[in-house]
Design a protein around this nucleic acid. Structure first.
Length: 932
DNA sequence: GACATCACG
DNA sequence: GACGTACGTGATGTCC
């Protein structure tokens, strides 16, 4: 049968099938030998579903699955950077590639590939031949590179969405019809394939230009006629690069294939061959389905719960049974556990303590687990319960081994480099052990594993993870400790309650670890976890334990001064209001201002209360003294309650210092968060607030050194969005906001006014946040139309920003997450939502790669810092997002600055190359105000 | 415990 | 064409 009119050729993009299958399924392995087969399983499922769906008038008469072959193609000879930033194929996928060919053959479908060519080229060759023969051709793929082939009998089918893409569909995507797609692609480039294109030009602009000039050649020839000066210059400067890009995206329709379409005729599967393959792979479910269709008996697969098409990740099939947990009361029993730990080489560890503050909490007991369902608790300092003893007893409860003896047995294991200690938030347990002189290493941390995979989806506390991923709700702590005034510490919990609670935590941790470990790999965040999360644990533990010296007297004096001023203001406010009321109550203030005094200002909020935020009061303050006084009072109230009062309570009794706690997995973007107290929001913007930093001091003989990245987020934006003008300005060391202003408003740098610069600065920040006309208008207190005008001009002058924003949103929509330059994944589950939620999600998605990359950079610096300053009499104390604060002996400050700056300015090396250099400013002083 | 407010990057 | 909007955090006070 010669292919021609009335015939229908299906071409399946096999590599895309494999990729989708791999990422859609958990890391399944063949039960009998542990070979990874997840991608093959998914691939077979997709093929099966495809075959079953082929009925009716659209059924193909000819079909082939086309694969890529080898990583080097003729395009690499044209351009050595082609696809150069592609990540290497995951280790557990590589061995599955040949099996996908075998699978295709087992389905009795033609399977084609050609050395030195991409699948797309073979598809192009066949599609063009099919068209020439007068037949139809459907390309089963959603790859936009194939869209240039659509039309005149050729169409595309997105198998996952079951959506057909015809000429109009292509126009929707590219703004041009298929014959001009390569022109648009040549201009827009492609960051995934590393096709350069024209810098700053995205699909939208490219389509605009092509439609105006007809085609790419005409456009390049008549580039002088382009109205926008920047765009004109870009096209003139990069003409060669654009032509190269076109030849990269242009598919080869004349690949030297050694077969014809006639060889691709649809064939019925050979039942024996297909079922044989499926049973060899141990795909039980699929075998059954296929056998049913073929009217055959399902092949017997040796009893193994190999989940061919498992929908849910595999969780250890062991039920939670609290009665199985063991109380370890003597050395003999503990040795049995240690033997088991040495046998397997890892152990889940959890500590119970007298509190949540690691600096003051004391160890009460340790739990261990090496196998799901099996865990023990080693109580150490539980008190005897004597209900008649009102004063509390120091007597130890029975059934506990001596504290020292237990530690002597545990310490070698905890410090043994050959034994992996697994914890949920190991920073906590590590610090508890560190108090006792025990250095726990090496470690794994299930909280951080979850964070690497699930940031943005949910919290990473143990209870949440257990419920979500193990389907098990751990015993709550509340009933054991009580709450409020009657709350007790864990050492008062009776043994029969303590053992199941404590041991269960180790059990849960171990199960989560077993579940997460392979998933990390699957989600491609192993590197993030291993280089950005886990190594930070000991670094932060050291910083938190070091703490910073705070001068309580200074704070106390400030508190008193604030109190006096506040009293004066309060009296004024009451007099101006004509009655006394609680100034600290926004509700009461709102009534006074808007009801009693009749000022303008609308209701807001669900409670129907007036809004009395600073921006509202600021507007009123020009006319009403009351508003101004309230603003002043509020500022003082904030400084006093949150800082000068509260900080005094955080001074540790033993060390005389303040020890914050950093959460590594708190912020979705990769930033740290600081709590108890938060030392990342100590005032600086107002002069009065700034003075609070004078209370953060260096001890006698030492000084504080602060190093902070200069404009790190804008630099990263310039790099990611490829804004040449911004990059160059940074390289020159220009005032970046003034440069932006000059560029936008056509004002020469030497005639810049603070007003214009201020506008540009607000826009620069706005861009990082996912700018909107409304938001900018509010920030600058200008009409919305004017703000929109600024933004339009900004996009015009820096077109790369638009492209970045559009590309990022599109990526988030397609994948459900965005990434930093270092591969950190930030999930964006709401990106597809309807309504205002979508706006929030989109702006967060735009911001996350920028904020997250900056966070990654300083994390890398912090991880390298201990080694870099090991020989200096210096300690790293605090991190404030783009700043690191050190304490150093007088005389060594210059050496510290040199060493730390070196680490910080090169923190991106060698993983990420930045087009913009990072620079770090340094300051030295006796206190934090002076050092910053 | 929800909400409003305000401190930081 | 209208919708409502700057990104990321944590701590405090009021009020129910």
């Amino acid at each position: 049968m010669t292919f021609g009119k009335g015939h229908h050729l299906h071409l399946i993009d096999g590599s895309a099938f494999i990729f989708r299958a791999y990422h859609a399924l958990p890391p399944l392995t063949r039960k009998s030998d542990g070979m990874p087969i997840g991608a093959v399983a998914g691939f077979c499922n997709m093929l099966h579903r495809y075959v079953e769906g082929n009925t009716g008038p659209n059924a193909p008469t000819h079909v082939a699955v086309i694969f890529d072959k080898g990583s080097h193609t003729f395009r690499n000879d044209m351009y050595d950077q082609y696809k150069a930033n592609r990540e290497a194929m995951p280790e557990d996928l590589r061995p599955q590639i040949p099996l996908t060919r075998t699978a295709t053959a087992a389905f009795n479908i033609a399977c084609k590939e050609l050395e030195g060519y991409e699948a797309d080229d073979i598809i192009a060759t066949l599609a063009v031949q099919a068209r020439a023969s007068g037949g139809r051709c459907t390309i089963i793929s959603s790859d936009k590179d194939l869209m240039q082939l659509v039309g005149d009998g050729v169409e595309m089918l997105d198998a996952m969405k079951n959506k057909t893409i015809d000429r109009d569909g292509v126009f929707e995507k590219f703004g041009v019809y298929p014959e001009r797609v390569v022109d648009v692609q040549a201009l827009a480039g492609d960051s995934v394939d590393n096709v350069p294109g024209a810098p700053g030009i995205g699909i939208k602009t490219a389509a605009l230009l092509i439609n105006e000039f007809g085609d790419l050649d005409a456009l390049l020839e008549r580039a002088e006629e382009i109205k926008q000066p920047k765009r004109r210059q870009t096209l003139i400067d990069h003409a060669e690069q654009i032509r190269l890009s076109r030849s990269l995206v242009l598919l080869d329709e004349n690949t030297p294939i050694d077969f014809t379409i006639d060889d691709l005729e649809v064939r019925d599967p050979d039942a024996d061959q297909l079922l044989g393959f499926l049973s060899e792979m141990e795909f039980r479910t699929l075998s059954k389905r296929v056998a049913e269709v073929l009217g055959r008996e399902a092949p017997a697969i040796p009893d193994a719960p190999a989940p061919a098409v498992a929908d849910a990740p595999q969780v250890a099939d062991v039920p939670f049974d609290h009665s199985k947990y063991e109380q370890v009361s003597d050395a003999e029993a503990l040795r049995v556990w240690l033997d088991r730990i040495y046998e397997v080489g890892y152990v889940a560890v959890d500590t119970e303590t007298t509190g949540l503050n690691e600096m003051t909490a004391e160890l009460v007991g340790v739990s261990l687990s090496v196998e799901p369902g099996q865990a023990c608790y080693i109580p150490l300092t539980h008190k005897a319960s004597r209900s008649d003893d009102l004063f509390g007893s120091d007597d130890l409860a029975p059934g506990q081994m001596p504290f020292e003896e237990a530690l002597q047995l545990l310490t070698p294991m905890l410090e043994d480099p050959a034994i992996l200690k697994i914890g949920q938030n190991m920073k906590y347990d590590g610090k508890i052990f560190a108090q006792l002189g025990i250095t726990v290493a090496p470690i794994d941390d299930t909280m951080l594993m979850s964070y690497a995979m699930h940031a943005g989806l949910h919290g990473h506390g143990m209870d949440a993870l257990s419920e979500r991923y193990l389907g098990h709700t751990p015993l709550p702590i509340k009933p054991l400790l009580g709450s409020g005034k009657s709350a007790v510490t864990f050492d008062k919990v009776p043994m029969e309650d303590a053992v199941p609670y404590a041991a269960e935590d180790a059990d849960v941790t171990l199960r989560l670890w077993q579940l997460f470990k392979p998933q990390l790999h699957r989600a491609e965040v192993t590197k993030v976890y291993e280089t950005l999360e886990r190594p930070l644990v000991p670094v932060l533990a050291q910083m938190e334990r070091a703490g910073i010296l705070v001068d309580r007297d200074t704070l106390s004096r400030m508190s008193n001064a604030f109190a006096q001023k506040m009293a004066g203001l309060e009296a004024d406010i009451h007099e101006l209001a004509g009655e006394t009321f609680n100034v600290g109550s926004p509700a009461q203030l709102g009534e006074i201002l808007f009801d009693k005094m009749g000022l303008q200002g609308g209701k807001k909020g669900k409670a129907g209360k007036y809004s009395t935020g600073a921006d509202v009061l600021e507007d009123l303050a020009t006319e009403h003294d009351l508003a101004r006084r309230v603003l002043d009072w509020r500022q003082l109230s904030k400084l006093k309650s949150t800082y000068t009062d509260a900080l005094q309570d955080h001074v540790n009794a033993d060390t005389g210092r303040v020890h914050t706690c950093y959460s590594i997995a708190g912020a979705a973007t990769g930033r740290l968060a600081s709590t108890d107290p938060n030392l990342q929001n100590i005032p600086i913007r107002s002069e009065e607030g700034r003075r609070i930093r004078e209370a953060f001091v260096a001890p006698e003989g030492k000084v504080l050194v602060a190093l902070d990245y200069s404009q790190i987020e804008l630099r990263i934006l310039a790099h990611i969005a490829q804004i040449d003008a911004l990059k160059e300005a940074f390289q020159r060391g220009d005032d970046i906001h003034a440069m932006t202003a000059s560029e936008m408003f056509d004002v020469p740098m030497d005639q810049m006014t603070p007003e214009i610069r201020r506008n540009a600065k607000a826009i620069n920040f706005g861009v990082i946040y996912g700018i909107s006309g409304f938001g900018l208008a509010r920030n600058l207190r200008i009409p919305r139309a004017e703000a929109q005008g600024f933004i339009d001009r900004y996009f015009e002058r820096f077109p790369g920003i638009r492209t970045y924003m559009d590309d990022t949103k599109a990526f988030a929509k397609e994948h459900g997450y965005v990434q930093t330059l270092f591969g950190r994944r930030i999930n964006t589950p709401n990106i597809g939502a309807k309504g205002p939620q979508a706006g929030f999600a989109a702006r967060a998605a735009i911001n996350a790669p920028i904020q997250g990359t900056a966070a990654d950079v300083i994390r890398r610096a912090m991880i390298r810092m201990p080694a870099a300053i090991a020989d200096l009499p210096a300690t790293m104390l605090l991190q404030v997002h783009d700043e690191l604060l050190f304490e150093v002996e007088k005389g060594a400050e210059d050496a510290l600055i040199a060493a730390a700056r070196e680490v910080m300015e090169n923190a991106n090396d060698p993983v990420v190359k930045l087009d913009v250099k990072l620079t770090v400013d340094a300051g030295v002083g006796a206190d934090w105000a002076e050092a910053h």
